[in-house]
Deep mutational scan, measured.
Amino acid sequence: MDETGKELVLALYDYQEKSPREVTMKKGDILTLLNSTNKDSWKVEVKITVNGKTYERQGFVPAAYVKKL
């Protein structure tokens, strides 16, 4: 869990989004878990840094590609 009590997951593999509802992640990324009720895909939040500014983006990733921490 992070400092706000949200559950975290670790990306086990790289994943490139295939639709606007998904998010891209790299192996080793730590993501905030938002919903894990679907056995196939979990909703997560990723933090992306562009030019020194951090943005948050929500979307789905394959459940088999992440592990709860």
Rank of each mutant, 00 (worst) to 15 (best):
T32S: 06
L10F: 08
Q58S: 11
K67D: 06
E22H: 04
G59M: 06
K18S: 10
G5P: 14
T49C: 15
G52Y: 03
G59H: 03
S41R: 14
K67F: 08
G52K: 02
V44P: 00
E17I: 05
Y13R: 15
D29I: 05
K6H: 12
K68C: 10
V44Y: 02
K27T: 06
W42V: 05
T32Y: 10
T4N: 13
M25C: 07
Y13F: 12
N35W: 05
E45Q: 13
T49M: 11
S19A: 08
G52I: 02
V46H: 08
E22C: 09
K18P: 03
E56S: 15
K26Y: 09
L31T: 00
T54C: 13
F60S: 03
T24V: 02
Y55R: 06
S41M: 15
M25H: 01
T37D: 15
E7M: 11
Q16M: 13
V50T: 09
T54L: 09
I30T: 04
G52D: 06
G5N: 12
A11Q: 02
K6E: 09
K6Q: 10
V61A: 01
D14Q: 04
M1G: 13
G52L: 03
K68S: 06
E3D: 13
A11F: 03
L31Q: 01
R57D: 01
N35S: 12
Q58N: 07
Y55S: 09
S36R: 07
G5M: 11
D29G: 01
K53R: 12
D29K: 00
D40K: 12
K39V: 10
N35I: 06
T37L: 09
I30Q: 03
P20F: 07
T24A: 06
Q58W: 07
L12W: 03
G59D: 00
L34N: 02
K68Q: 07
M1R: 12
D2A: 15
F60V: 04
L33K: 02
E22L: 03
V9H: 05
K43H: 10
N51E: 11
K53M: 13
K53G: 07
S41Q: 14
E7Q: 14
E56C: 15
S41A: 11
T4D: 12
A11V: 10
Y15F: 06
K27I: 04
M1S: 13
A64M: 11
P62N: 05
V50G: 04
D14T: 04
E45T: 10
D40Q: 09
Q58M: 07
F60Q: 03
K53C: 13
A63P: 07
V50Y: 09
E22I: 02
E45F: 06
N51L: 08
V50H: 10
R21S: 14
D40E: 12
T24K: 03
Q16T: 14
L69C: 14
L31R: 01
S36A: 11
K47A: 08
P20N: 10
L8I: 08
Y65E: 02
S41F: 15
K43R: 09
K26L: 07
T24R: 05
V9Y: 06
I30P: 00
E22P: 05
K26S: 08
P62F: 09
S19G: 11
K47S: 12
E7D: 10
D14N: 07
G59Y: 05
L10H: 03
Q58T: 10
K47M: 10
G52Q: 04
P20T: 09
T4V: 14
G52H: 04
L10W: 06
K39E: 10
N51V: 04
G5W: 10
K18T: 11
L69T: 05
K26F: 08
N51P: 02
L33C: 06
M25F: 13
K68M: 10
E22K: 03
T4W: 12
E3Y: 13
Q16W: 11
T37A: 11
G59F: 08
I30M: 05
E45M: 15
K68D: 03
K43L: 15
D2R: 10
T49N: 10
L8T: 07
K67Q: 12
Q58F: 05
D2W: 14
Y13A: 11
K47E: 07
N38Y: 08
E17P: 15
I48P: 00
N38D: 14
S36N: 07
L33I: 03
V23C: 07
A64H: 11
I30G: 01
E45W: 06
V46N: 04
E22G: 14
P20H: 09
A64I: 11
V9K: 00
V61G: 01
K6F: 10
R57A: 06
R57M: 08
I30S: 00
V46C: 10
Y55F: 12
E3K: 13
D29R: 01
G59A: 03
G28C: 10
A63H: 02
I30D: 00
Q16S: 11
D14G: 04
D14K: 03
Y65M: 12
P20C: 11
G52S: 05
G28N: 06
T54F: 08
E56K: 15
T49H: 11
N38P: 03
